[in-house]
Amino acid sequence: MVRRLAWSLPPAVLLAAAFLYPLALVVRQSFQSDTGGTSLKPYTAVFASAAFRQALWTTVWLALAATACCLVLGFFLALVIAFVPFPGAKAVARFVDVFLSFPSFLITLALLFLYGSVGMANGLWTEATGEASGPFHFLTTPWGVLLAEVTYFTPFVMRPLLAAFSQLDTAQLEVAASLGARPARIVRRVILPEALPALAAGGGLVLVLALNEFGIVLFTGAKGVSTLPTLVYSKAILESDYPGACVVAVVNVLVSVGLYGLYRVVSRRAGA
């Protein structure tokens, strides 16, 4: 027993040194003001700033909205791939896997070409109407971030769902259909209960990823959209305000862990 413990300790010690120890230093620094000594001053300063409160609110509502959209969209798309298969459905499922192996900021980059001020959508509009500029300006607003996040995170819902659907015995669907159940009823009564655990797992993952997303927001390049992760970056790197950055980081971790915990409780109550 002692030998087993000694044997499994080194990797844990390494991780603790490279991760837990730095994290502890972040917490410690968040309680240190510029003049030195332990104080709550960094917290009061950060909480008083409007930029922080704005970023906190944006982070939370963006993550919740992205999670909700991804769940609905991912469920529908996975449903079609699994149960209304078309030629090439397998390739689409494979494409989803490939999609997951690309970094998130590529989506924002692509959206710049699609909906940017000189992008495809506005180009089509100006060519068609002859106006000087197109109507699509949402990319530098939180809505642009939401669109990118929904695009990027939906595959994270689809993958566990497709795995769960492939476990589902299609004979169940055929029996249900032969008993006269309509598709909507089959989805609600047969497929949804089976898919709930996968749906809950995918949703939880998306929630955490969205709360912690950085690349997508950074690439929109909008000064108007700021979330907790980008605030950490700008405070630490652009403003060199380390205590402030540490405070935001602590809040970000607490919000992520807290919301994820809440999500787990709610989804367990809901029977998933």
Partner: peptide, 14 residues
């Protein structure tokens, strides 16, 4: 679960 930015900050601080 911890945001990557925070991991970056923590490593930087430490």
């Amino acid at each position: 679960a911890v945001p990557s930015v925070v991991v970056g900050l923590a490593v930087l601080v430490a």
